[in-house]
């Protein structure tokens, strides 16, 4: 019984990590049809922002939850202005340009920060679950994933900004005829996605350690989740994270972490063979 509970918690953590890692990418892809291959590096920047801010004496929570998303969000605004804006509607070129950005960020950060691992230690100590002990920070991550999903849902569904953004993505011309500036909506949406990526990087920094190349560790998982999920931002991310996170955690539990990831990839590939438009291409099509 205790074992089942512990494994269940591990699965939930795995799913939560996937949700956190993919949400920023899903917002940018789902809303703007922009595939941001520099997503992993945005996470890396967020993690570095958190490390620098804690080094400057801020509390870890302020650094993670406030400094990282704001810093990376601003950076995303600049990137949108300089690069992404020139490439709207050219999906493949956007992908290539953001890949270039990703390589350049890894290279630049390696020059600035060196190739050594810095990090922050996980707060919150450990918590007893039956006969096992689990890290309190993992429980916090589960809560954070739920809060982030709720936040995105509320922002898109119930705020004026969410309404305007969704309308603009559906039909930019009509939106602009109604007095909305599509340019500005695109910029803000991209920045919001970047902020989510930065937040994700900071949240995962205590688990993974912070190096300039850390983005590569997440990008494959994030992409496979978003693509398996399909077009609907929240429903897609949540369903794909739920499925793939479970597969990968159980695979890890039964064998090794690498085989867990391989199992996750195989499931994703088989799923895409059956549902080329992702899970929400077939079910929950009208979900957010």
């Amino acid at each position: 019984m205790d074992l089942a509970l512990a494994v269940g918690l591990q699965v939930l953590t795995g799913v939560a990590v996937l949700v956190i890692v993919s949400l920023g990418l899903a917002v940018v892809f789902g809303m703007m049809r922009v595939i941001n291959l520099a997503h992993g590096e945005f996470m890396m920047l967020g993690a570095f922002a958190a490390v620098l801010a804690t080094g400057a004496g801020l509390s870890l929570w302020v650094a993670m939850l406030l400094v990282a998303p704001v810093a990376v969000g601003l950076f995303g605004l600049v990137v949108e202005r300089l690069v992404i804006r020139r490439l709207y509607g050219r999906m493949v070129d956007t992908m290539l340009a953001t890949w270039g950005l990703s390589l350049a960020l890894v290279g630049g950060m390696t020059m600035l920060a060196g190739n050594s691992v810095s990090g922050v230690s996980a707060p919150l100590g450990s918590v007893a679950v039956g006969g096992f002990r689990t890290s309190g920070y993992e429980l916090f991550l589960i809560g954070a994933a739920v809060a982030l999903s709720l936040g995105v849902w509320v922002a898109l569904r119930f705020t004026r900004w969410g309404l305007v953004a969704r309308g603009t993505m559906q039909d930019a011309e009509t939106a602009s005829a109604l007095g909305v500036a599509p340019d500005r909506v695109y910029a803000v949406t991209f920045a919001a996605g970047a902020a989510l990526s930065g937040l994700a990087g900071a949240l995962l920094a205590p688990l993974s350690g912070v190096v300039p190349t850390m983005g590569a560790a997440y990008i494959a998982r994030a992409f496979i989740t978003v693509i398996t999920g399909g077009a609907a931002i929240l429903a897609g991310t949540l369903s794909a994270s739920g499925l793939l996170g479970t597969v990968s955690t159980l695979g890890t539990f039964l064998s090794t972490p690498v085989l867990g990831e391989v199992a996750m990839l195989v499931v994703a590939v088989v799923l895409l063979r059956l549902l080329p438009r992702g899970i929400t291409g077939r079910v929950l099509r009208r979900a957010l």
């Binding site: 490439l87 340009a97 890949w99 270039g100 950005l101 390589l103 350049a104 290279g107 630049g108 390696t110």
Partner: peptide
């Protein structure tokens, strides 16, 4: 010394996409 080739490669790719697609 001190220069990371990734920065150059990334810059070349960015410039290629933006300037000579």
């Amino acid at each position: 010394p001190g220069f990371d080739p990734n920065l150059l490669l990334g810059g070349v790719l960015l410039a290629a996409v933006l300037a000579v697609p």
